[in-house]
Simulated assay, not measured.
Amino acid sequence: MYRSIFTLVVSSVMAGAGMAYAGNASAASYPDKPIKIVIPYSAGGGTDQFMRIVSERASRLFGQPITILNKPGGSTVIGVNAVIGAAPDGYTLLVSTNTSYTLIPYVMSPQPYAPEKSLDYVATLGQTAMVLTANKAMPSDLKTVLDEARKSPGRYTYATYGMGSSTHLAGEVFMNDTGVEFRHIPYKGVEAVTALAGNQVDLMIDGVNAAGTMLDAGKTKALVVLQRQRSQFLPDTPTLAEAGYPQAAENIISYVMAAPKGTPAPIIDKLQRGFAEALRDPAVLEQIKAMRTEAAFKGPEETREFVAGQSAMFKDIVEKKHIKF
Rank of each mutant, 00 (worst) to 15 (best):
M14H: 06
K188F: 15
P112L: 08
N199T: 08
I267G: 01
L119Y: 09
T144Y: 08
A86I: 03
Q111S: 13
K33F: 01
I205R: 02
S26T: 13
Y158L: 07
K151G: 10
L223Q: 02
M19G: 07
R150T: 12
V83I: 09
Q310I: 02
E286D: 14
S152N: 14
F182I: 08
Q227T: 10
G207I: 08
A129P: 07
A265S: 11
F233C: 03
G164M: 06
L93R: 04
P34R: 03
A265L: 10
A28Q: 14
G90V: 05
F233W: 06
S59F: 11
P34S: 11
E172P: 05
T47M: 04
Y21N: 10
T47G: 04
V208H: 01
A259P: 04
A217S: 12
I323R: 00
S96H: 09
F233N: 01
M14I: 15
E242R: 04
G171W: 08
T102R: 01
Q227M: 09
M313K: 15
A123V: 00
M14F: 14
A170K: 05
I39F: 03
V107R: 13
Q64F: 07
H168V: 06
V122T: 03
T157K: 05
D120R: 11
N176T: 12
I205P: 01
F6P: 00
G309V: 06
N209A: 11
L94F: 04
E181P: 04
I205Y: 04
E148I: 08
V9C: 12
E286Y: 12
H322A: 12
P112W: 10
E181D: 12
H184K: 09
A170R: 06
R57F: 03
M130W: 01
P34K: 07
E181Q: 15
A258H: 03
M108C: 02
K136M: 14
I253S: 15
